[in-house]
Design a protein around this nucleic acid. Structure first.
Lengths: 225, 225
DNA sequence: GCAAAAGTGTTACAGTTACACCCATGG
DNA sequence: CCATGGGTGTAACTGTAACACTTTTGC
C-alpha cells in the first residue's frame, strides 16, 4: 500500500523542498525528540524529499513509519519554513510535521544513519530553523494536551491512570492533583476501563484504554490545569 | 525596500509552489474574505509565485500590500497544502497565510483581475483545497480572538468600545454582554483611552487605541466567553 | 503486619455570568 | 425635552483548586 520511496518510477519534486518531522516520545521519564546524525551536517530532524506522487502527510507518515516500524502514529502539520539562504540564489523549503509515539525502542541506525532520542530540554546544536521549531512543537503539544486527547498517543494501548497522569506531568512540567486529574479525565469520557489490572508493587491498578470513538477534540476548553 | 516582483533579476522557484492568502476584513457588518477572479479558473484566493530571494512571510505580506496599499497587516502562516493531482505526475504546493485588515475600500481590479469581498458564510465555489482552508482560517480566528489581541487588527487605529465589541460579536457569531466585555478588555490592559471622543448620535464615545507595548498573547486563557 | 501504590469526596474560593439604570449629547 | 447611544456595579452561581485517609496487594 505504501509506495517504496526508492522505486525508480517515482518522480521527485525539485530539491528545494523537504519534509521534516519533530518526533516526540516519553522515554526514561522525559519528553524526548528524535534526531538523526548525518555525518557532515551533524544532528538533524528526521525527514526527506517529497515524492511527487505522495501527499505531504503520507510522506511524513512514511518517514515516521520507517523509524518506528508499522506502528500507527499521531501526526499533524506544524509549520513551513522557507528562509532565504545567504547567497540569495538558493533556498530550502521545509514542511515540518509533528508526531507522537509511545515509548519504544527504535533501531539505532536506519539506512546507515544514527538515530537518537534527546530530552527536549537539552538537545544538541542543529540547524537554526530546526532548533527553533522544537520549542514551538513543545508549546503546541502543551497547549493541545489541555483541550484534546493527544496525551494518549504517548502511551501504550492500555495504561493505568497513574501512567496517564505521569505523562501529563512530564509534558506540562508540573505536578497535578491525583483526585482532580482522575475526576476530570473520567468525566471527559475519553477512556474506559478494561477488564485487566496491572500487577506490581502495592495494590494492582485498573488498566484503561483510550476510546477511539471519543470525539477527537474534547469539548472542555481546558481539560487540565 | 520591497523588491519588485516583476524585476528580471529575480529567479522564481519552480512552478509547483505558490503562496495564497486568506484575507479577512469586517465590511458592512459581516466578516468577509477576499477572492480574485481569474477568468478561466473562476474565483481564487489571492496569491502568487514564490520568489527565490524573498522569505515566505514577506512574499505573503507583499501580496496583501498590493491589495491594500502600504497598510501594515496582521499575518500568520495557516497551512501548507500539497495534494497530489489526478494524473499523479504534477502537483501544486500552496503555502497558505492568514491576514486581517481593517475595513477599507480596495481597488476593484488589480493587474486586470477583479477583487471582491465575500461574506465567509456565502462565498462562491472555488478550488476544493482553498474552500477547505477558509473555514479553517475562520476557526483559527475565532479561537485566537479569545486569548490574544488579534481583534484590534480588524479595526482602525482608534475605535470605541462599542466598535470593538461589535467586531468580537461578528467574529464569534454571538452577542456579548456590554458590561462584562468592557470590564474584561480593560482589565486585560491591551487598550488605552485617547484624549479624543467620537461624536455622533447620542452621547459621544471615548476613543481607545491598542497598546502596541501590550504583550501579544494576553495572559488570560480566555478573554471572552 | 508492613511497605507500596491505588483509589476515593468535600469544602473553600475564584472567576464567570446575568442583569437595569443613569448620563451626555444633538436635534 | 426627547431620542440615541455611552457608560457603570453587584449578587448568584458555577467551575476550579486544595486537601488526607482507606484499600488492596506482595513480601
Amino acid at each position: 500500500m505504501v509506495n517504496d520511496p526508492m522505486s525508480l518510477s517515482h518522480k521527485f519534486l525539485p530539491d528545494c523542498l523537504e519534509i521534516r518531522v519533530v518526533l516526540f516520545t516519553i522515554h526514561q521519564g522525559h519528553l524526548q525528540v528524535l534526531l538523526v546524525s548525518n555525518q557532515e551536517n551533524g544532528w538533524q530532524l528526521p525527514g526527506g524529499k517529497i515524492l511527487a506522487n505522495l501527499s505531504l502527510e503520507k510522506t511524513a507518515a512514511d518517514c515516521v513509519r520507517k523509524i518506528t516500524g508499522e506502528r500507527q502514529t499521531y501526526l499533524e502539520q506544524l509549520y513551513t519554513y522557507g528562509d532565504v539562504s545567504n547567497d540569495k540564489e538558493t533556498r530550502l523549503i521545509s514542511i515540518i510535521y509533528f508526531a507522537l509515539i509511545p515509548d519504544a525502542t527504535i533501531p539505532q541506525t536506519i539506512d546507515g544513519f544514527e538515530h537518537k532520542w534527546f530530552p527536549v530540554s537539552t538537545f544538541p546544536v542543529i540547524e537554526p530553523a530546526q532548533a527553533e521549531v522544537i520549542p514551538y512543537a513543545l508549546r503546541r503539544l502543551r497547549y493541545k494536551i489541555e483541550y484534546s486527547a493527544v496525551g494518549f498517543e504517548l502511551l501504550p494501548a492500555v495504561f493505568t491512570l497513574t501512567d496517564l497522569q505521569h505523562t501529563y506531568e512530564i509534558i506540562l512540567g508540573e505536578s497535578l492533583d491525583k483526585r482532580n486529574f482522575r475526576r476530570r479525565i473520567l468525566e471527559a469520557g475519553v477512556i474506559e476501563p478494561t477488564s485487566a489490572r496491572k500487577q506490581g508493587e502495592g495494590r494492582p491498578a485498573q488498566l484503561f484504554r483510550y476510546r477511539p470513538d471519543a470525539v477527537a477534540e474534547v469539548k472542555a476548553r481546558r481539560l487540565f490545569p
